[in-house]
Write a protein that binds this DNA or RNA. Sequence first.
DNA 1: TCAACACATCGACATCCGTCAATATTGACG
DNA 2: CGTCAATATTGACGGATGTCGATGTGTTGA
Lengths: 119, 119
Amino acid sequence: MDAMTPGTALPVLDAACCVSSGDAAMAPAEAETLARTLKALADPARLRIVSIIAAQDAGATCACDLQEPLGLSQPTVSHHTKVLVDAGILNREKRGTWAYFSLVPGALDRVAAAIAPLR
Amino acid sequence: MDAMTPGTALPVLDAACCVSSGDAAMAPAEAETLARTLKALADPARLRIVSIIAAQDAGATCACDLQEPLGLSQPTVSHHTKVLVDAGILNREKRGTWAYFSLVPGALDRVAAAIAPLR
DNA sequence: TCAACACATCGACATCCGTCAATATTGACG
DNA sequence: CGTCAATATTGACGGATGTCGATGTGTTGA
């Protein structure tokens, strides 16, 4: 059939697709950072840990108060708390042999503030 | 039946650790659901997809507008959009050969609302 | 009808993640 | 010291995840 020049030039797409759009999108570095924080929260056990700590009237929660309600082994709970501490969501304070955890003030607010502009 | 009600029969623990605490914590099922949603968001590529779509003034964004800024292959972009659609974050609307995506109204608000009580 | 296009799905691969048992480390108390 | 209790770390294992090439599925247009 006739030659429609397959190789050289793309026929200008007349349809309404592929508008270039202003690039007000999230930068790759910012997306990477936010993804790391969300990944730390995106686990049922860790969400419950944060929830338990947030529900405490006291400023800090002992690690021993986490293991039983979660139904997980002690190393696993320790692993999850480490992930949350490394993500800047929890504070660890060691008092004697016990480890007390508390929410880092403003950490979850920053998460919400990062999601809000996407609404 | 156990011996006594859990609150009264507890032998007084020597130290100040392991206070029983009121169980106002997140329920396991709720944690599982929220974790699934957060897992869908906890990826740099998917965050940028949501960001690009949210930044569009138009109501919907063509899939072809996603591949180039992300620098990922077409199957990978299709995979990520599927994850976001399955999580109830994006809407897919097929117009001819093109697929248009838009934010599900209120979806990200619900995520923020689930995180807020933990502050 | 047929070729080109846009997107979805499949198969495969490497990597990461959640979990536990075993062990190490640290602090308290004789 | 030496022992015990609370927590952290290590090693291992199965399963989930992100990525791509190849292929399948519809739709458009000549």
